[in-house]
Design a binder for these strands. Structure first.
Length: 223
DNA sequence: TCATTAAATTGTT
DNA sequence: AACAATTTAATGA
C-alpha cells in the first residue's frame, strides 16, 4: 500500500505538517481482511484508530439472544473507533467487514500524540464527531417519524456523507440483507423499499449492490 | 474458451 | 419462514 493511497483515504493527514505526517505514516499498519471478518469485537481493548481503505465495514451489535443490528456502514475514506480510544474503554460495538477490505491501523500512541500536538487534527476530529452526532440524531428522528421507504433512502444517503466519507463513488457493494440490518427492517421489506426507490429513479439495484443516481433526491425522499 | 456446479443473492409468497 | 429464479465464482475439460 503506497503512502499516496493511504493519504487519499486519510483526508485528515492533509492537515498535518510534513514531519508529523511522516511520523504518523510510519506507525500505520495496513491489513487485508476477508469478507465477514471481525475487525474489532465488542469487549476488545481499543488499541487502534481504524481507517477503511477499500471495501465496506459495518459497525454493529447483537443482542444476548442473537439478534443483530447495524448502526452504520463505513465506506473507503472513513475512520472509526476514536470513541473508545478517547474514553480509554473497551470496544462497545463490533466492526465486521462486509466485503474483502484493506484497513489502516493507527496505534493508540500515535493517536494520542496527534491529540497532544496537532490543533488541525483536533479540529478534524471535532468536525467528524459533530457530523456523526447529527447523523445519529437524524437516525433517531427518522426512525420514529418516517416510513420504511424513506428510512431506507436516508440510510443509504448517510453512507455518502461527504464530510465523513469524502470521494466515494456512486456504487455501493452491499447486499439487500445487509441493507435490511442497517435500516432495521426485514429483508423482504428492504427489497420492496429498494424497488420503490428504483422506480422513483433515485437508485439502480443490481446483484450484490446498488448504484446511487440521485443523492439529493434520496435525502429529500419522504419529506 | 466453454460447460458444469456450488454458493450467494434476489424476488415472491 | 420458505421457495424458486437469477447471478456470480470456481472448477475442470
Amino acid at each position: 500500500m503506497s503512502t499516496q493511497t493511504l493519504r487519499a483515504h486519510a483526508r485528515w493527514m492533509a492537515a498535518l505538517t510534513p514531519g508529523e505526517e511522516d511520523r504518523v505514516i510510519s506507525s500505520i499498519a495496513v491489513q487485508h481482511v476477508a469478507a465477514g471478518s471481525n475487525i474489532v469485537r465488542k469487549g476488545d481493548a481499543a488499541e487502534h484508530w481504524i481507517g477503511v481503505l477499500s471495501g465496506l465495514v459495518k459497525l454493529s451489535s447483537s443482542s444476548p439472544d442473537g439478534r443483530a443490528t447495524t448502526f452504520t456502514g463505513v465506506p473507503p475514506g472513513g475512520w472509526f473507533g476514536e470513541g473508545s480510544l478517547l474514553k480509554r474503554e473497551l470496544r462497545k460495538y463490533d466492526a465486521v467487514s462486509l466485503s474483502d477490505c484493506s484497513i489502516a491501523l493507527l496505534p493508540r500512541a500515535s493517536f494520542e500524540w496527534l491529540l497532544d500536538s496537532s490543533i488541525p487534527f483536533n479540529r478534524y476530529l471535532l468536525v467528524q464527531l459533530n457530523e456523526r452526532l447529527s447523523q445519529f440524531i437524524g437516525m433517531v428522528e427518522y426512525e420514529r417519524l418516517l416510513d420504511p421507504d424513506a428510512r431506507m433512502a436516508r440510510c443509504i444517503a448517510d453512507l455518502f456523507n461527504p464530510t465523513l466519507y469524502p470521494g466515494i463513488g456512486p456504487e455501493l457493494p452491499i447486499s439487500q440483507s445487509e441493507l435490511a440490518l442497517l435500516v432495521g427492517v426485514s429483508r423482504q421489506r428492504a427489497n420492496q423499499s429498494l424497488q420503490t426507490l428504483e422506480r422513483a429513479g433515485l437508485l439502480a439495484v443490481g446483484y450484490g449492490g446498488i448504484r446511487v443516481l440521485d443523492l439529493p433526491g434520496l435525502r429529500r425522499h419522504g419529506l
